[in-house]
Simulated scan of single mutants.
Amino acid sequence: MKSIEIDDELYQYIAGQTKKIGESASEILRRLLLGDAEAQVPEVSEVAAVETPVAVNSNIFDLINKQDLQAESSVVGRFLFILSTLARVHKKQFNKVLDIKGRNRLYFGRSAEELSEAGSSTNPKQIPNTDFWVITNSNTTRKKMMLTETAIKLGYSEQDAERIRDLL
């Protein structure tokens, strides 16, 4: 197997094209580029399982592939990937992240400008496949805290929120 390097934006696009749980990047690209007959049309039940918001007791960890996380070479890339997965699973609830704030700073917003106006050197990045933005210049400990708070806002238990945090 060969390895290639792609930028974060392209990787997030590829990951966003997932049609079934456990589908690898190679399978996604084969389906998109080559029209592979087996990969092209997933079963309806598999698509419904991915697109339906997951109940609180469902296992988000089945949707986050360890290989995909390891492919992200930076903490920011993994941070955005985890947030994007949470947003995909909890589409209707994800706007609750807008309530997560620091003492003097917004962590999440609807635009880069909103976050830039709320603090200096925030380095806002769009959460892939969403209309939400997040600051990315904070240290890893702060990013872990933001993931933990996000998971709790979305209804995860303390224990599962810590597991999500530890994916970073």
Rank of each mutant, 00 (worst) to 15 (best):
M1A: 14
K2E: 12
I4K: 14
D8V: 02
E9H: 08
E9V: 05
Q12S: 12
Q17K: 15
T18D: 09
K19G: 12
K19W: 04
K19L: 13
K20G: 12
I21P: 06
A25F: 03
S26N: 09
E27L: 09
I28D: 04
L29Q: 11
R31G: 04
R31F: 07
L33I: 10
L34M: 12
G35E: 15
A37H: 11
E38H: 13
A39W: 10
V41P: 01
V41E: 10
P42A: 02
E43H: 12
E46F: 05
T52F: 05
T52S: 15
P53Q: 13
V56L: 07
N57R: 15
S58G: 13
N59F: 04
I60R: 08
F61C: 12
D62K: 15
I64E: 11
K66A: 08
Q70M: 14
Q70E: 11
Q70H: 14
E72Q: 12
S73K: 15
S74L: 12
S74I: 11
F81R: 12
F81L: 07
F81N: 04
I82S: 00
I82W: 00
L83A: 00
S84C: 03
L86D: 02
R88M: 04
K91Q: 08
K92T: 13
K92N: 12
F94T: 02
N95W: 09
K96G: 06
L98A: 06
D99G: 15
L106Q: 00
L106G: 00
L106F: 07
R110A: 09
E113F: 09
L115V: 03
L115N: 02
E117S: 10
E117Q: 10
G119S: 13
S120W: 10
S120K: 14
S120M: 11
S121R: 10
T122Y: 00
T122K: 02
T122R: 05
I127D: 01
N129V: 03
W133P: 01
I135R: 02
T136I: 09
N139P: 08
T140Y: 09
K143M: 08
M145E: 12
M145F: 07
L147S: 01
E149C: 12
T150M: 07
K153W: 06
K153P: 05
K153N: 09
K153D: 02
L154V: 04
G155V: 03
Y156D: 00
Q159H: 07
D160I: 00
A161I: 06
E162T: 14
E162G: 15
I164A: 01
L167F: 15
L168T: 06
